[in-house]
Design a protein around this nucleic acid. Structure first.
Lengths: 229, 229
DNA sequence: CCAAAAGTGTTTCACTTACACCCATGA
DNA sequence: TCATGGGTGTAAGTGAAACACTTTTGG
């Protein structure tokens, strides 16, 4: 039937909030806009959804095109559709939330002409559109989700120390954690594989390396286990 | 600039999953479709987003138009946009999740011509489009959220007994709860106002009525209190 | 007086929290 | 040998879970 075509349609885009962890700071990926509106302003990577691709595919495609990044974790965040949010007219955007290992995606020029860079989430430049609100929503989601889903590991290299892991949680949750209690709890879950390796090139006692066991987590999850920190 | 207008656009709709509690059963509101595609099938209430309204407004408007319902609680659920989900062409839908007091919205004919009815969420007819998937996602959200946000009260009449409240949680969570522990915990939160009234017309000892104190909750929430059951 | 649901406390156990010192390594 | 972070255990307190009988009311 033809109802589908009777009405004018909003434009539909996707935007991605990509988080990365840089030593002691949580970073977000931004792209410098080259054209109006908001030319010269920093914005979230994103773009128009094509007619033949799913929303997830659109998010991945845009992210790869604008930054070369293929995130380990990508999930839909929220859809923003206030009538005035884009000065060009009605544009609804499906926002995504992604986590990457910064070690794999060091600051580099985008594959197309645009400039891409990592910014501390606590100190971003003024953003285009309603992207500050989207970033805020993504941060909330990250803070909430990191505690009951083991997604934090996607921010770390495959092999990491317990101190790195603890720092990650302290940075995201914005509060200090007790070292002994943290280690006790995370090790008790039996989700970390203890490696026969230690970190390299430190000028003090080298810490043991661990790896997150995705396989074991999936098993435990099925059996009703709940990750919680 | 004109990028906005260079691409063909998907159509954009909203769909609402409206839950209600009927004695001992969780219900969802469905509308019988009058036209193709899926004419005669039951579907979630919803329709096209207009150019001058927000997504939330669209959801409320469609719900009111199709069923006369103005929900106490409405929140965005998830956006579904798989290319094949609507046989008419590319239609992306922003799904919403709503809770109503069934006592206020007894089964009745819709204001426009379509037939509307409440169905047990565990036993719905075959649904149009991908609405079964949307319903599943909404149920998951309800189950998850009811435990750490006091939204369950939106399903009950303003004055309710502790047994009613407990039944609500048992139905939504699909597991039995211990009466004494439940009462202890919920009362300890100090969010229920104990009324000087009891339920009427029961053929046994009448239970005391309580009311949820929204004001007090908002205060405690600001002070860092976390509802959790 | 019987049926039906309301209402009420205590104990046990598990988990969370707080807390401080010695160890290994490289400079 | 010093500076730096790595690594470890215990005690006290708090909250969750298990559990059964008496009370009230209407029929």
């Amino acid at each position: 039937m033809s109802h589908t075509y009777e009405y004018p349609r909003p434009a539909l885009t996707v935007d991605c909030v990509v988080f990365g962890l840089d030593e002691d700071d949580l970073k977000v990926l931004l792209i410098k806009r080259g054209v109006e509106p908001f030319a010269g302003r920093w914005a979230l990577p994103g773009g128009f959804v094509r007619m033949d691709e799913s929303l997830d595919e659109a998010a991945r495609r845009e992210l790869e095109e604008e930054s070369g990044i293929r995130p380990a974790h990508l999930e839909q965040l929220y859809t923003f559709g206030a009538p005035g949010r884009d000065p060009r007219g009605r544009v609804v955007t499906v926002a995504y939330f992604a986590l990457v290992k910064l070690t794999d995606h060091r600051p580099h020029a985008a594959t197309d002409a645009r400039e891409a860079a990592w910014f501390s989430v606590w100190d971003t430049p003024k953003l285009a559109f309603d992207h500050a609100e989207i970033l805020g929503t993504a941060l909330q989601r990250l803070k909430g989700k990191v505690r009951y889903q083991p997604i934090g590991f996607e921010l770390l290299p495959p092999k990491f120390t317990l101190t790195q892991l603890q720092r990650l949680y302290e940075i995201v949750l914005e509060r200090p954690l007790d070292k002994r209690n943290f280690r006790k709890k995370i090790l008790a879950m039996d989700l970390l594989e203890e490696l026969d390796e230690v970190e390299q090139d430190v000028s003090h006692r080298a810490a043991r390396l661990y790896r997150f066991d995705h396989r074991k987590y999936k098993q435990l999850e099925k059996a009703g286990f709940n990750f919680e920190l």
